[in-house]
Design a protein around this nucleic acid. Structure first.
Length: 605
DNA sequence: CGGTGCGGGTCTA
DNA sequence: TAGACCCGCACCG
């Protein structure tokens, strides 16, 4: 068994994708449950691929890591196992942060994430706004492109759009938004949920664009503060020079990092596959038909990627999109989307065939093979640098992925492909709750309405401010950190993770459910209710409570409980109530009396 | 002023 | 029905 960032995988599975988990397979093949075909796409069966997907086994010890943001009950995580905050989470990843983690509390993200009303008060959903780019695709002195962070505020963002390109050398360029389509053609989404002593974070989709510069970056300031960026015509000055120098330095360092990453042996060591491999790529393969999936938006976007690659001079920068996004933004398997209630909540949960092949089997629709290959590698790098707690596909992936990505245009991956299982569904099996649906059957890409300035933009990833903003340093650290993570794979990555804490406890948000966390290791107590459930209470929570009782999960911290989801080899939890449906289609919380827990329902900060 | 969260509504598939 | 968005409002820094 291999533990990756807290997620356990059976070595066997990693090495071989054999369907050795009947139960999992079963769960992984929800289609068997109902009329809904798992994969409406070309190959309905692709997803199951033998059900080899490795669902982390709770019995394995890291079962607590098995959760989905929509799970009725999320695991309790020991304080020591909280993840280090990652502001650049990308791909289908999940993190569990300390309730005291300031960044987590603020739901911070390097990506421009805006609040999205998902009508679920328990889970905060945010979607990516993409990045601001120059309409002229101008190139900065360092060869990079304008890549600014869109304002979250609609009004502010509108003001940003149309502004003159901050690149002084740019003529007529205007800032425009390149929308994110990393999640089946839709913006990448982040979900935040406060439960118990932790903040659960789950991301869906892989950003198909570069990381935007920090809003306080020099470029941003110049862009919106009318401070001209260094340009040929530029007022050269010291600032300009320093910027260039920094860029050069940055490029070198990045190159160095990339080289390291690429050199890393991975092929020979399947186990070396990082969680990213598993959780990120697992994302894709969900689309019933990649051909239908707009994750990688074949249309005009392809060219964009190609262009990006073509200008990969500085691809090494931290902003480069993940391979998944570039060549094949993973999308979730439709079959794995479940709705538990009327809250518009999708239960997408990626189960990855913990096999090297799977990891590299990220489907791609991108026709640009050569670029794709490059991207794959870059992606691998970026993954690592992206700050994901999971290390990512190393060179191997890049390599393998070249094949997979470049040539595998088929949704069906011959190799074990990432699969998505709805944990909730699993839990609800028999309950008739989890009904699979197809999440990526349509091509949302074209449907993107706002700021549909999706033109091929040959922009190169770049962080001109890399050395100018505090963040730059941080990111660099992140890069290194990730590198380390890569090497750590195979071991408990979460252990020893530093997490930010603050004396101030989270005051509570509506989606903070204190009673939704399974107590650690408790296998037989159902008494957690009194302790864990304070004020916040809704059907969701109620259900969780029920589960807690029925399943012997203690909600109170300190107790130990089995993973929420029945792990392979473990019988699924007791059947859930018929439905987890909220009373009202739209939110309607019972105005959670946060009193008991001292949590203010609507206090956001 | 902008970030952030809430939540009522609309549109679309 | 569900997902994505839009929009206004409120709060906060």
């Amino acid at each position: 068994m291999v533990v990756i960032n807290g997620y356990s995988f059976k070595t066997q599975q990693l090495l071989t994708q054999q369907p050795d988990h009947p139960q999992l397979s079963q769960f992984a093949q929800p289609q068997s449950q109902g009329p809904h075909p798992v994969h409406p796409g070309p190959s309905p069966g692709q997803q199951q691929a033998g059900g080899s997907m490795t669902m982390p086994s709770s019995s394995a010890g890291k079962g607590k890591r098995e959760w989905d943001i929509n799970d009725a009950i999320v695991p309790h995580v020991p304080d020591q196992e909280f993840d280090e905050f990652n502001e650049w989470s990308d791909g289908h990843v999940r993190h569990i942060y300390s309730l005291h983690n300031e960044e987590a509390k603020k739901h911070i993200s390097g990506w421009a994430m805006r609040n999205t009303n998902n009508h679920n008060v328990n889970i905060l959903k945010k979607s990516c706004l993409g990045v601001l780019v120059c309409s002229q695709h101008c190139t900065l002195p360092n060869g990079s492109k304008i890549n600014l962070r869109p304002a979250i505020c609609d009004k502010a963002r509108r003001k940003q759009e149309g502004k003159a390109c901050p690149n002084k050398s740019c003529r007529g360029g205007r800032l425009e938004i390149k929308p994110c389509r990393g999640h089946c053609g839709y913006p990448v989404t982040h979900f935040w949920r406060h439960s118990g002593n932790a903040i659960f974070f789950q991301a869906k989709g892989v950003h198909d664009h570069l990381r935007p510069d920090p809003k306080n970056s020099s470029v941003s300031k110049r862009a919106f503060g009318r401070v001209p960026l260094g340009g040929k015509s530029g007022n050269g000055s010291v600032a300009k020079k320093s910027v260039i120098a920094g860029l050069v330095k940055q490029a070198k360092q990045q190159h160095s990092l990339i080289s390291k990453v690429l050199k890393r042996p991975a092929v020979s060591n399947p186990l070396a596959h990082t969680a990213l491999d598993i959780y990120q790529y697992n994302a894709c393969g969900k689309c019933a038909a990649y051909s239908h999936c707009t994750c990688s938006y074949l249309d005009d976007s392809n060219t964009t990627r190609s262009h990006q690659l073509s200008q990969s001079s500085n691809y090494g920068t931290n902003s480069w999109p993940l391979s998944g996004s570039e060549s094949s933004a993973p999308c979730e398997t439709a079959a794995n989307v479940f709705t538990v209630n009327h809250q518009h909540i999708t239960y997408n949960y990626p189960i990855y065939h913990a096999t090297p092949a799977a990891a590299t089997a990220a489907p791609s629709k991108s026709p640009s093979l050569p670029y794709t290959c490059s991207i794959s590698e870059l992606a691998a790098y970026q993954q690592s640098s992206s700050g994901n707690s999971f290390a990512m596909g190393v060179p191997v992936h890049g390599h393998t992925q070249c094949q997979a990505v470049a040539y595998d245009s088929s949704p069906q991956l011959a190799t074990p492909e990432p699969e998505f299982i709805n944990y909730s569904q699993i839990k609800h099996l028999g309950g008739g709750v989890g009904q699979e649906e197809i999440s990526c059957k349509a091509e949302p890409g074209p449907t993107i309405k706002y700021n549909a300035t999706v033109e091929t933009q040959p922009y190169v990833e770049d962080n001109y401010d890399y050395y100018y903003s505090p963040k730059a340093e941080y990111e660099m650290q992140q890069h290194h950190h990730q590198q380390q993570n890569h090497q750590q794979f195979g071991g408990n990555q979460t252990a020893g993770h530093h997490y930010y804490e603050s004396s101030s406890g989270y005051n509570g948000v509506s989606y903070f459910d204190t009673g939704t966390t399974t107590a650690p290791g408790n296998t037989a107590t159902g008494n957690g209710l009194e302790a864990g459930y304070g004020g916040y209470y809704d059907h969701y929570t109620s259900y969780e409570q029920q589960m807690a009782v029925a399943g012997g999960f203690a909600t109170a911290a300190g107790s130990t409980a089995p993973a929420v989801v029945a792990p392979p080899g473990h019988p699924p939890p007791p059947p859930p109530p018929p439905t987890l449906t909220y009373h009202h289609h739209h939110h309607h919380h019972l105005h959670h009396p946060a009193a008991a827990t001292g949590l203010a329902p609507s206090v956001t900060h």
